[in-house]
Design a protein around this nucleic acid. Sequence first.
DNA 1: CGTCGAGGTGACAGTTTCGTGGCAACTGGT
DNA 2: ACCAGTTGCCACGAAACTGTCACCTCGACG
Lengths: 229, 229
Amino acid sequence: MAVKILVIEDEAAIREMVDMSLAAAGFEVFQAESGEEGFSLLNEHVPDLILLDWMLPGMSGIDFARRIKKDPLCSDIPVIMLTARGEEEDKVRGLDSGADDFVTKPFSPRELVSRIKAVLRRASPMSSEEVVEVDGLKLDPLSHRVTAHDNKVDMGPTEFRLLHFFMTHPERVFTRGQLLDNVWGTNVYVEERTVDVHIRRLRKAIAGSGHDRLVQTVRGAGYRFSAKP
Amino acid sequence: MAVKILVIEDEAAIREMVDMSLAAAGFEVFQAESGEEGFSLLNEHVPDLILLDWMLPGMSGIDFARRIKKDPLCSDIPVIMLTARGEEEDKVRGLDSGADDFVTKPFSPRELVSRIKAVLRRASPMSSEEVVEVDGLKLDPLSHRVTAHDNKVDMGPTEFRLLHFFMTHPERVFTRGQLLDNVWGTNVYVEERTVDVHIRRLRKAIAGSGHDRLVQTVRGAGYRFSAKP
DNA sequence: CGTCGAGGTGACAGTTTCGTGGCAACTGGT
DNA sequence: ACCAGTTGCCACGAAACTGTCACCTCGACG
């Protein structure tokens, strides 16, 4: 799942340089020369981040950022502004417009990539933080730990997410497809039988303390997490 | 390391004014417009103090404070409530909100800063000055020393800050990004893998006295400091 | 009892993640 | 200028994790 970045910059030289750097860093880049072109691209691909030049012909970067933030579909997309000079006033005005960070030209490819990563990791927080407990089996998302009557239980990341999903949705049958959507994520193609394998691994992980039987097979339908037999 | 303050306030004008004042006083400020945003910020930056508006869209300031105080990991963070002058003030003070202080709007920046410093002095032996000890490993922020069963432990400044952050927030997983934000600083752009290197150096430093195993790897998530295996 | 489909199980190879040593750049003191 | 300590980054290898497959077991049903 490649991270998509929309670059809006009118100078071809800079645009190419940025394109190269980001592509080399593993990002998927979409280029636009103007705000208008940026908007039409926005309709085709929703990017994970927008790199926006401060000075643009026609619609300025500020205008573009303001319009972005108004659109509920795009308002969560972080914006990094490219400015020519580190003018303090410009920065303040930019901040009001909703930009998440500023990079002043000239900049090194390394710095640009680094700051993009920094903005991206701030934009995506982690999931819920409530401790879940069923029948002595405790799962703590904050410490990312599972204990069975205070004994540590080891499992892989996928098993952890699977168990977390089960424990927050107990007593309910899920098909393999639903589990794939909720635990693996949409837009990923994985064989449904793979769910069986991870169910097996999860069962083995929590088996030690009589906590098997918690993950139940519903023949012909899917799986269920329940304390009742 | 700079004192971090989380400001939760929906009015942009007040938020900016507070931001300016606190930044001028040497604090590191994080802004949030709503309780929800505040919580997600809380996940990334653990602040030393929270400045909380009483009237918030959605989750009210009271709700937010209560939820904070319920979380054992955040319950030690002092909270200052911002209230409008008038009829609300008395009600708020009467409620069991868990706030450490109240500041009524309108207020002067000078007053706000001095109240913040007062609360920090009063409530912060936990946060930055007190000696922390876990399992015979003692860290003294004032004398900048770490001892393991009275034997001095040597490490670099970055390892010291990393260990201090870990010891004041044990039993919780932090992603590399969160560690970068909280130990290195928000406006620093460093590769996430660099965290691994300093984790290694920290482990090597405290390894001598059986105090490895304290810094634990959580595969796919980040690192955790815990006395439990 | 035999058949058949659904689910369980163990193994395996590709991929991802993490640990580790080394190195160049930088800093502050002499 | 030199030296010692620190820092960030890279490259390599080890270890863990993942998705699939082939094969086995189980249960329902005629």
